[in-house]
């Protein structure tokens, strides 16, 4: 899974099309490669991951900044690495 750097300095991980447990695993991996305070935006379209991804990230101590539906049934989760 490729993490892309956005012009605003945040990072983007597009996980559309993937199902559990992969969104949790790839989000966690992507966060490992970020520095403290950097922001990762994860794009998802698998409804169960809307529960598991934020919960798994919070359990690791990272901050959920925003969960937003960016188009019908596609969500963006913004996470700040601790």
């Amino acid at each position: 899974m490729n993490v892309r750097r956005l012009p605003n300095g945040e990072y983007l991980l597009d996980l559309r099309g993937t199902v559990c447990p992969y969104p949790v695993l790839y989000t966690r991996k992507a966060l490992e490669n970020l520095k403290g305070g950097e922001v990762l935006q994860v794009i998802l379209d698998n409804p169960p991951s809307l529960e598991t991804v934020p919960a798994s990230v919070k359990a690791l101590g990272h901050d959920i900044l925003e969960v937003r539906e960016v188009e019908p049934a596609v969500w963006a989760i913004k996470i700040r690495r601790r």
Binding site: C20, P21, V24, L25, P48, E51, T52, A55, S56, A59
Partner: peptide, 9 residues
Amino acid sequence: YAAERFLMA
């Protein structure tokens, strides 16, 4: 472990 790590709801 699967639930604790959110690998399975």
